[in-house]
Amino acid sequence: MKSGFHLILSIALLLMNSCIDPLDLEIDDQAEMLVVDGLITNEPGPYTVRLSRSKPYDSYADNWSAVEMGATLILSDDKGNQETLTETAPGRYQTSVAGLQGQLGSTYTLSIRTKSGETYTSVPETLRPVPPIDSLYFEVRPQQVLNEEDVEVTIHVVDVLLDAPDPETEKNYYLWQWQSTFQVNTQPWDYTEKIRGVRVPRPKDCCEVCWVTGPTNSVNVQEDRLLNGGLLSRHVVTQIPVTEQAFGTKYHLEVKQLSLSEAAYDFWRILKAQIENGGSIQDPPPATIIGNITNTVTGERALGFFGASAVTRSSLVIRREELGVRIGPYVFPDDCRVITNSTTERPVFW
Rank of each mutant, 00 (worst) to 15 (best):
V331H: 08
G324W: 00
P286Y: 00
G299V: 05
G279S: 13
G324M: 10
C336G: 12
R301C: 11
S280P: 05
D335V: 12
T294F: 12
D335C: 14
L316N: 00
I281H: 09
R269F: 10
A310V: 09
T298K: 09
W268D: 01
Q282I: 12
I327Y: 05
I290Y: 08
G291M: 10
G324E: 02
A310E: 08
L271W: 01
T298W: 04
G291L: 10
V325Q: 06
F305M: 11
N295G: 12
T312V: 09
N277Q: 10
N292H: 08
V311A: 07
I281A: 10
D334F: 14
V317M: 04
N292F: 04
G279Q: 05
W268S: 01
N295F: 03
P333N: 04
T294N: 06
E321G: 04
I293W: 01
P286E: 05
I327W: 01
G324R: 09
I293L: 09
D335E: 13
A310T: 11
E300A: 12
T296K: 07
L303Q: 11
E300H: 07
D334H: 15
G291K: 03
G299H: 05
V331L: 06
Q274L: 15
G278C: 06
Y330K: 13
I289T: 11
N295H: 15
T296M: 03
N277P: 01
A302M: 11
G304Y: 01
G299R: 09
Q282R: 14
N292P: 10
G328K: 14
E322M: 10
C336I: 08
T296A: 05
F306I: 07
T296Q: 05
Q274V: 15
S315N: 07
P333V: 02
V331K: 09
A287M: 11
T288G: 06
F305R: 01
L303K: 13
N277C: 06
A308F: 10
P286V: 07
G304E: 00
E321R: 13
T288L: 13
I270C: 04
L271P: 04
I275W: 00
D335W: 08
A287Y: 01
G299E: 02
R320Q: 13
S309L: 07
C336A: 11
G304A: 08
P333S: 05
Q282T: 14
W268E: 00
P333T: 02
I275S: 07
G328Q: 12
A273P: 02
N277W: 03
N277A: 07
T298G: 07
G291Q: 04
S314L: 14
R326S: 15
S315C: 03
I327G: 12
R269S: 14
S309H: 04
E321D: 12
